[in-house]
Design a protein around this nucleic acid. Structure first.
Length: 278
DNA sequence: AGTTAAACCTGGTTGC
DNA sequence: TGCAACCAGGTTTAAC
């Protein structure tokens, strides 16, 4: 599921309600991608600080509270099928609920059928294991120090297909399969174009297209193909506005040609062969 | 070093 | 109806 917009929608949904809450308990269900890395009891009494996002990760920092607990944070990833919800009451976990953070202001619950998601304790975002997981991430798409010029320079260092490099997050984080396809369509760039062959003009266009696509998706509450829900259980609406993703055979909204589906790096790519140029 | 395939896991959909 | 094959918002790991 969750690409940057879905993760950001989630962050915005949990930040306010949980701010200043004290941890009452941690509950673990079936194993996620990695072990938690801390004894759940160690966090009891800790207070939550504002929730941050880095790429598709959420960082929930905590500090020791009056009744104890420790300082550090939880690094969360929603994987392919994860979503977070705030449980008002103490409801029982379902079959796909694998992590509960019980607090004085409600229970934060991770639901993740496929269990590609992760919840990992780290003493800080700059220490292991968080630092290792975040080490290879490129800049945030809305970071002002990411300019058309630096973006173009980064593209020049790769010859792999631009779609694959966008997905890798090494040049800019946040785009997954949906938004990589959509941004490339918006920019008029063929997904198989080698990065090194993208000139400064088109690089600038791609960066702008990516930013606009992600911003629009956030405003629409993200995309829900199947699993994604915001913290109130609501679906996203972006998928209804997608121009190429999941629309094989349909008319390209810009030029009317049929949208094509190919496979790149084991992932489906949707694009318009008429108005996206190599 | 950069690029690509395999692996992780579950469930819904498609096709025979 | 049943069952196998295929598909899905991601990322790490190992292998060219």
């Amino acid at each position: 599921m969750p690409e940057l917009p879905e993760v950001e929608v989630t962050r915005r949904g949990i930040d306010e309600p949980l701010r200043g809450a004290q941890v009452l308990a941690l509950r673990l269900g079936k194993a996620l991608r990695w072990p938690l890395g801390v004894a759940p009891e160690a966090l009891v009494g800790s207070r939550l600080l504002p929730v941050q996002r880095r790429g598709k990760y959420l960082w929930l920092p905590v500090v020791p509270g009056p009744q104890g607990g420790c300082g550090g944070g939880l690094l969360l990833h929603l994987g392919m099928s994860g979503s977070l919800a705030l449980q008002p009451a103490d409801t029982l976990p379902g079959a796909h609920d694998h992590f509960d953070l019980v607090t004085t202001q409600g229970t934060l619950r991770l639901t993740d059928p496929r269990r590609f998601g992760a919840v990992v304790w780290s003493p800080s975002i700059a220490d292991e294991p968080a630092s290792r997981l975040l080490a290879a991430l490129g800049p945030e798409p809305f970071d002002e120090t990411l300019t058309p010029a630096t973006f173009h320079a980064a593209l020049q260092r790769h010859r792999a297909p631009v779609k694959a490099v966008l997905l890798s997050g090494r040049i800019v984080v946040g785009a997954g399969n949906i938004y990589a396809c959509e941004a490339l369509h918006e920019a008029g760039i063929h997904p198989a174009t080698p990065c090194e062959r993208i000139g400064p003009q088109r690089a600038a266009r791609l960066l702008q297209a990516l930013r606009e696509t992600l911003a629009r998706a956030i405003a629409l509450g993200g995309s829900t193909l199947r699993d994604f829900r915001d913290v109130h259980g609501m679906s996203g609406a972006f998928q209804q506005h997608a121009r190429v993703y999941g629309r094989e055979g349909q008319a390209c909204p810009r030029c009317g040609a049929a949208v094509r589906r190919i496979v790149q790096g084991q992932r489906a790519t949707y694009y318009c062969a008429a108005c996206q140029r190599r």
